[in-house]
């Protein structure tokens, strides 16, 4: 044994590791199934629409919090709610949305606040979805993201990638295409579907507010992805309008100077500085916990209508100017 051999074998082990990861790419996993089903259903809806349409691009705050029918009556255009899960992060969300964006469409982007601070540190859902459903997108990511993903994929995830024998659309549970209407909105979110566990989850979220303001950076990688996405849309005559996401109200978002400034100014200023459109004030989209269903981003049926009306009100007043 020599140090040279040790380093050589360490390097070869790393290569073997990468080969093992790619050996299971494109194999479906249970974790990614509902997201895949939801996007498929939304794609089918979008394909049926001839002519211009409005597409809502975001995570699950849009899935649960946009009433596409009400929004459609305002725009007098069909609306496809492409919001699914913020857990797959900004690069994948933007990339996947491109499959249904056509010339002349309008993109409404109520991106979750942490999307603006996206850096290379992705979570397990991104890694899972990427290798199970969209492995080629790996090569479009930055080297830093690629390295991070290869180094952070769990042994268990690879094992599942090789061993999962499912792949058919889910038909039961809470998340999935079967619980989404033809516009792409989540259904069955009225109070009667809210159980004790959901109340407890909301209480837990309320006790542990987010600190997105502290994480915000104008240098974050997320802005590069947004730049590329907006430029891609502009080339297709697609208008992108950034609007606030909904987030369960918490006093710290109004009292903590860093958090307050983040929602009042920082996101809006940075979007506008780049020559893009931002309509609405994030604080106006924060509601009491009773309007949320099971997380601090998921509105109930009632909350969804209230949020959509707020959005229309802001769009009306802003577009009038």
């Amino acid at each position: 044994m020599s140090i040279k051999n040790f380093i050589l074998f360490l390097f070869l082990t790393a290569i073997l590791w990468v080969v093992t990861i790619f050996g299971q790419s494109n194999n479906p996993t249970l974790m990614s199934q509902w997201i895949f089903d939801a996007y498929n259903k939304k794609e089918q809806t979008a394909k049926k629409i001839k002519g211009k349409k409005v597409i809502v691009v975001a995570g699950s705050n849009a899935l649960f919090g946009i009433d596409s029918k009400i929004l459609s009556s305002y725009f007098k255009l069909p609306v496809v709610n492409d919001g699914v899960n913020a857990g797959i992060y900004l690069p994948l969300i933007l990339e996947i949305s491109k499959r249904i964006i056509n010339k002349g469409d309008i993109v409404l982007a109520p991106l979750e606040p942490n999307m603006y601070s996206y850096n290379h540190k992705v979570g397990v859902q991104v890694i899972d979805y990427l290798f199970a459903r969209k492995p080629l997108f790996f090569w479009d990511l930055s080297f830093k993201e690629q390295f991070y993903i290869l180094w952070h994929i769990e042994f268990e995830r690879i094992w599942k990638g090789y061993n999962y024998r499912g792949g058919s659309p889910l038909t039961a549970g809470f998340y999935g295409a079967f619980n989404i209407d033809q516009n792409g909105d989540q259904i069955n979110t009225s109070l009667k579907f809210k159980n004790q566990g959901m109340f407890k989850d909301l209480e837990r979220h309320h006790k542990n507010p987010e600190h997105y303001g502290a994480e915000f950076s104008t240098e974050a990688l997320g802005w590069d992805y947004l730049e590329k996405f907006v430029s891609w849309c502009n080339k297709r005559d697609v208008k992108v309008i950034f609007v606030p996401a909904t987030l369960m109200k918490h006093p710290s978002y109004f009292n903590d100077p860093i958090e307050k400034e983040f929602y009042d100014k920082k996101i809006i200023d940075e979007v506008k500085k780049r020559g893009w459109t931002f309509i609405g004030k994030p604080h106006n989209y924060m509601y009491d916990s009773s309007f949320y269903f099971n997380t601090n981003f998921h509105l109930t049926q009632k909350g969804k209508i209230m949020r959509t009306r707020q959005l229309i009100k802001d769009l009306k007043s802003s577009l009038k100017k």
Binding site: M1, S2, N5, F6, L8, F9, L10, L12, T13, A14, W17, W151, H152, E154, F155
Partner: peptide, 21 residues
Amino acid sequence: HWYHSLFVAILFFIALKTLAL
């Protein structure tokens, strides 16, 4: 032998990899 290096390299790699998570 080379297989001693290989064995140690695999252990070290797995440990380093586990630390990332």
